[in-house]
Amino acid sequence: MSEPPSLGRDDVAHVAGLARLSLSEEELDMFTGQLARVIDHARDVSSLDVHDVPPTAHPLPVRNVLRTDDPCPGLDRDEVLAAAPDVEDGRFKVPRIVGEAP
């Protein structure tokens, strides 16, 4: 079983980008140290050979929870838009979008 690598500065910069967070150089150093400690501690789990154990995504074995296709009233648009930072013409207004959805 190969040991997972430790977490470095580049990793933290990469995940910060994925998570839409910006970090100062100082923060990058601080978070790298802190997160590396947690990841290193997690070696007791990450280095285990558990390939024959099925994963648990839900604590209890429940299946097929469904609702009938019946409409129910939603929210009042004015109330919804009142919570928004910026609106125009009944819609949420955002700065220009660069790039399309993947």
Partner: peptide, 9 residues
């Protein structure tokens, strides 16, 4: 690419 802003529904 030339848009100033966008509206979402």
């Amino acid at each position: 690419h030339a848009a100033d802003y966008a509206l979402v529904d």
